[in-house]
Simulated assay, not measured.
Amino acid sequence: MPVHRPGTARRGQHPHAVGILLAALSALALLLTLPGAAQSADTSDGRSARGDDVPQRGTARMGMGVVEHDGRGGRPSGGSAAQTEGVDVSSHQGNVNWSALWNSGVKWAYVKATESTSYKNPYFAQQYNGSYNIGMIRGAYHFATPDTSSGAAQANYFASNGGGWSRDGRTLPGALDIEWNPYGAACFGKSQGAMVDWIRDFLATYKARTGRDAVIYTATTWWKQCTGNYGGFGASNPLWIARYNTTPGELPAGWGFHTMWQYTSTGPVVGDHNKFNGAYDRVQALANG
């Protein structure tokens, strides 16, 4: 072992430690050049494509991307306009205590039915029938994954697996949940024009199957980014805007008003909470078509 003269060492310096550190850095640099080394792939819209960031397929739920972009939430500011409280749920909530929600003032509900063409919510029956049986007006929603199959294929799958509609006065038209992709690139790898075409394909197929125009659930930021702020659906498809704040904020192009507003992911009882833009009779009117 070499002997160092007293007084030659500086604070923080140790000759053997320096050598070990340099060797470790060299080994790390070599490791990162090897195939399969863990790296974070950049996507065109700035999201990470690392495997450890990707949830399991089927676990996506309404507002998942809104939490990432807007936070969990706000409470509506006071106003004189009538609004009706609602909730949306998925398998994330499991078996729902519908009595508690009803007693808290919730009068309508949307339940996740499907995702892509391969996933069905295993809690759908308890949630969809339970909300109906307690007295709520209820509907179903589909979480869109435009990178896995066509809009028509997903609309047909949705309509055949819980997303249908009947004129019973208690069933809302199906909702298309189109938002940030939790599994990869925010716009599902599609150009703005291709995204508009996919949405149009879904909406046309759903209407052909059910006779109703589907509700569109989205966030203005995503809509601008992924459709170029397309304004062609506002005349026929009710808007369900997602914004976790005290007001709905700016709406996507084509809509002069929102029909529903998801304002928080941390509801006072369970699920994401929403305001219908109108009194209870307007909820009934949407159900009746």
Rank of each mutant, 00 (worst) to 15 (best):
S91K: 15
R75Y: 08
D70E: 15
Y132V: 11
R75I: 13
M64G: 03
V111H: 06
Y128N: 00
Q126L: 02
A100Q: 03
S91E: 13
Y132N: 09
N121V: 00
D147K: 10
Y128V: 05
V111A: 03
T117M: 04
P76N: 13
M62A: 14
P55C: 02
R61L: 08
W108F: 14
G73K: 07
N97F: 01
A140P: 09
A81N: 09
N121G: 01
S131F: 02
H92N: 14
W98I: 12
R138A: 10
M136H: 04
T114L: 02
G74M: 15
S131T: 03
K120C: 03
V54P: 05
E85T: 14
S118N: 04
N133D: 14
I134D: 01
N95W: 09
F143N: 01
G135M: 05
M62K: 09
D147C: 08
A109C: 10
A144I: 06
Q126R: 14
D147I: 15
N129L: 11
I134A: 12
V66A: 11
Y132W: 14
I134R: 15
M136N: 02
N97P: 11
D53P: 09
G51L: 13
V106P: 10
I137S: 09
F143P: 04
G65F: 08
Q83S: 08
P122H: 07
G105D: 10
P55A: 09
A100H: 15
Q83I: 11
S116H: 11
A113I: 05
G63K: 00
V89T: 05
G71E: 00
Q56C: 05
Q56S: 14
Q56I: 10
R57P: 14
W108I: 03
G130C: 01
Y132Q: 13
A125I: 06
I134N: 10
G86W: 05
Q126F: 09
V106C: 06
T114Y: 10
K120M: 12
Y141Q: 00
E68K: 15
Y128W: 11
V106L: 05
Q127M: 04
W102A: 13
V67Y: 13
T117H: 04
Q83M: 13
D147A: 14
Q127V: 00
R138N: 05
S149H: 08
P146M: 02
A81G: 09
W108D: 03
T117P: 01
D53E: 12
K112A: 09
G139E: 02
D52K: 06
P122W: 07
G51N: 15
G86F: 10
S80L: 15
G65T: 02
V106N: 08
S77V: 11
Y110H: 06
Q93C: 04
K112Y: 03
G78V: 15
W108V: 02
S104C: 03
P55T: 00
P55D: 00
V111I: 13
G63W: 06
S104L: 03
T117Y: 05
M136T: 03
S91M: 09
H92M: 12
K112I: 03
S99N: 10
H69T: 11
S91V: 04
V66C: 08
V67C: 01
S90E: 02
A81Y: 05
G79A: 12
S116C: 03
N121H: 01
G65V: 04
M64A: 12
G74T: 07
Q93Y: 09
D70P: 05
V54G: 00
I137C: 07
G78D: 12
T145A: 12
V66W: 15
W108T: 06
H69S: 15
